[in-house]
Amino acid sequence: MTPQPEIIIRPHRDWWQIDWAEIFRYRDLLLIFVWRDFIAKYKQTILGPAWFVIQPILTTIVFNVIFSRVAKIPTDGLPPTLFYMAGLLTWNYFANVFSANANTFTNQAQVFSKVYFPRLIVPFSITISNLLAFSLQLATFFCFWAWFRFFTPAGDQIVLGWNVLLFPLVIVQTGIAGLGVALIFSALNAKYRDLAFLLSFITQSWMYATPVIYALSRIPENWRWLANLNPLTQPVEATKLLLLGTGTINPLDYAQSVIITLLLFAIGLSMFHRAERTFVDTV
């Protein structure tokens, strides 16, 4: 057994003193949590993993009918199905990470009040395990992508270049953004339990504030700065650009989105850290 540093227990650890070395020592727990989430999801129902595929397809169908056929919102000249699916791909990952972690303290109260481990392990592991749903959705997307690319006349517009290799970075950013927002929310929710009721409302409105059903290019130039304050705007646009070849991205806006993401994450870490110190007292 490796020698352990002395553990000092005293009041008021400051927020920046997050013990990253300790989190690293608990990496096995992180992996086991991720693996537990996989297994548990897989075991619960036969349809379990299939839901990850069915749900975005259903949403895409609904969007097709409502926003494309009825409301006739243009989709940057792309086939609406692919347009919505690409947007939902990144958006859903964000939304799943957010909602799965938003109630960390209340969901884990039982465990947190009985055993110590770095609390951040839980949201970290959930963020990673949500990549399972994401990959299934990505695979589904590419099935549709291939069909539209090779078997429909609109296929020529769809471009998939080498820059698709940047896509994982976009997803990492999306995960960090979702985690950051969730950490903030769960810290608030630990104190004010009634916030949980707001969760689905926040997620839903946030989606409409993000270019999922519309293209950023539809927003007038002088209002784009507002849309770009939303850290998800650029990643969702980037997804469409990287996977379909059309999207409104510029480096400055993207840098801003990354900075806002990191800012949210830092705020989330500090609020979470504050809440974890004495959360158990209020259970």
Binding site: M1, E6, I7, P11
Partner: peptide, 25 residues
């Protein structure tokens, strides 16, 4: 066991700690 923080004072534990406040957590 570091489940909650103290209000005052200090404790030093010089070694790996495992706490068993419940079985099967």
């Amino acid at each position: 066991s570091r489940i909650t923080d103290p209000t005052v004072g200090e404790a030093r534990l010089r070694g790996r700690v495992a706490s068993l406040l419940e079985v099967g957590t």
